[in-house]
Structures are given as C-alpha cells and as structure tokens.
Amino acid sequence: MGKKQVQASAQSVGFLLVPGFALMSYAAAIEPLRAANLISGKPLYRWWHAAPGGKPVMASNGLTIIPDTGVGTDRDADMLFVCAGGNPATFNDRHVFAWLRKLARRGVTIGGISGGPYILARAGLLDGRRVTLHWEHQPAFSEAFPEIAVAPSLFEIDGNSITCSGGISALDMMVALIERDHGRQLAAAVGDWFLHTHIREGMGPQRMDLRVRLGIADEKLLRVLRRMQGNIEAPQPRAELARIACVSVRQLERLFRRHLGHGIHRQYSSMRLERARQLLRETTLPVLDVAIATGFSSSSQFARAYRRNFGEPPSRTRLSG
C-alpha cells in the first residue's frame, strides 16, 4: 500500500447507516478499527454513527443501532463510510446528499460499502472515479449511471473516494487502509486477529468462478456461460455460442443437458430473468425498459416469461421489492 504514514492523533471515522444496511458489511468495516486500537495499545481510530433524522436505524436482519447523531452534524471526520443494503436505488434524501457533498468539499474521505456507492453516485461524488459495489446492485447501478464505469472488484481506493463491494471485503478494505496508515505489521496482526489468513487485494473478484459456483469443469461450456453472462441485453444466437465452444449446436445442447440438466434456451432465459428480477427490485425503470435491458422484444413477452419462471407478474415483484 506504499509508505507507512505516521498519524499524529486518532483518526475520526464516521459511519452513516442507511435503513436496511447490511450488518455483516458494517461489522467487517468497524471491527478492524477496534482491533487495531487493541493490538497497537494506542487509540489510532475513534468512530461515531449517524443516521437520517438521528433516529434508531434497523439493519436488514432486524437489529437496530442507536446513532450518535443525525445527518448534518459538524463532528470531526477524517473518513465517513455510507453503509447501505437492500434497495439503495429508492433512497432519495436530499439532506443526506447535501451533507455528503459538504463533507467532501471539506476534504473528508467519503466511502460507500455494499449499496453505499449507489448513494454516493446520487450525491454526485463518483464522477470520474474508480468504482465498485456489490454485484447484486451493479445491473441497476449501470442502468442508472451509465457514465460511471464499474469494476467487479472487492474495493477501490481512489484518492479521497473509497468504494467497497461489501460483505467480508469490507474487512480486506480496512486492513488495506490500516496498512497504508500504520504499516504492514499491524495490518497483518489485525487479519490474524479475525482468523483472516488470506488478505485479498482490492482487484480480487467478488464472486466465485463459474467453475466452482456451478461445479462445472468443461472449458467449452464455461466459455459459453461466460459469454451468455456478459450478453444479457443482446442474447447471443445458439450458432454463435457453438462457434465460441468450437462445437456444433447439437453438441453444445448435449453439453448443457449433461452438465446443467436443461438446454441452452432455458439456461439463457433463466439468467436474463434473474437479471430482470434484480432490476425490478432495485430500480424504478418502467417494465418495458427492464424487458429491453434483459433482451425481450416487448413487455408482454417479458411478462409471460417472468410469470412462468417466478409464478408472479413483474408488477408484484416491484411492489414487494
């Protein structure tokens, strides 16, 4: 992470908890700070919590945290992390956005964890930055902010802007920040403290490789599945997929049935409909736009396929999202 920087006093770290925030991501971000203080025997970090309206804020699992302050506080902060989960696309609090912009103008490092980067983007703080966020939120984010390039990485530290995909990657991110500020030895000790024996670099992948996730070893099939995954809006014809695998269409169909239990069309349809479900839950895109973004030619065609797959119309998924 570069040269060790000596800190004259404890860094103040704020956590803005948005209702529905992911508790694991938050815990993985704050606990390494506590461990760094305990292991070093010095108050290297101190922290505080804010929430919209200053009211108790509930995590996605139902646990409630009482914040120290509301949004707009003038408390000192070297860094502030926005912790969000659930459906960050629906969060639209102009007071929060204005406060975040004010902190950024003051030189505070602003971070977003899991769905937090979505809120930073809505505040206008991610333009021209290297950005990542949880893979579940990426399709909706890219539809809402097509001008912001998203990397499928664990975390990104770009000057005074930090974005993190969430989950356990928040621990990797904090260990990287501790190493930057206080050296490799302390960072390694913090990793050991949490039995995290393999600290991952920021550019590591968020998700398991398809080989592990699906339990498939056939390289031809894996090449095709990756191409399908990367072409949801414009589905590739079977002949093109077969060309990628260097087999005939008939042979490719056999590979799908042998390893996945169904054919190419069903697999592709399932992948596209899962993406549609994410967009319905996490964006306010009209149903027709969701249909087009997932490769369907009309909203009626999309609605029929969606109901067959999930047993409910797209409108019901949106209402329950």
Rank of each mutant, 00 (worst) to 15 (best):
D218W: 02
Q278N: 10
M208R: 11
E147S: 08
A144N: 07
R122T: 08
A84W: 05
S165P: 06
Y118A: 14
G54L: 14
T69H: 11
F302G: 05
F310G: 02
G295A: 07
N160L: 14
G62W: 12
A28Y: 01
R275I: 05
A89V: 05
F310L: 08
R243W: 04
W135E: 06
Q251V: 11
R243L: 10
R184G: 11
H196I: 13
A305L: 10
A176F: 07
L44N: 07
Y306H: 04
F15I: 02
G41C: 08
A8M: 14
F21H: 09
L16C: 02
S298H: 00
C246P: 12
I65G: 05
V108P: 03
A188V: 12
G230R: 12
L103A: 09
S165E: 04
L214T: 09
E219C: 15
L279Y: 04
D68T: 08
Q267M: 13
L120E: 03
G295F: 05
R34L: 11
L177T: 00
R254M: 07
E240N: 14
A187Q: 03
P56N: 06
T197S: 15
N87G: 07
H137C: 11
I113H: 02
L133G: 02
A29E: 04
Y26W: 08
A51P: 12
V57F: 02
E274P: 09
Y268K: 15
R101K: 07
W48D: 00
A176S: 09
I292N: 12
D289V: 15
A29Q: 06
A104P: 10
M79Y: 14
P19M: 07
E143N: 15
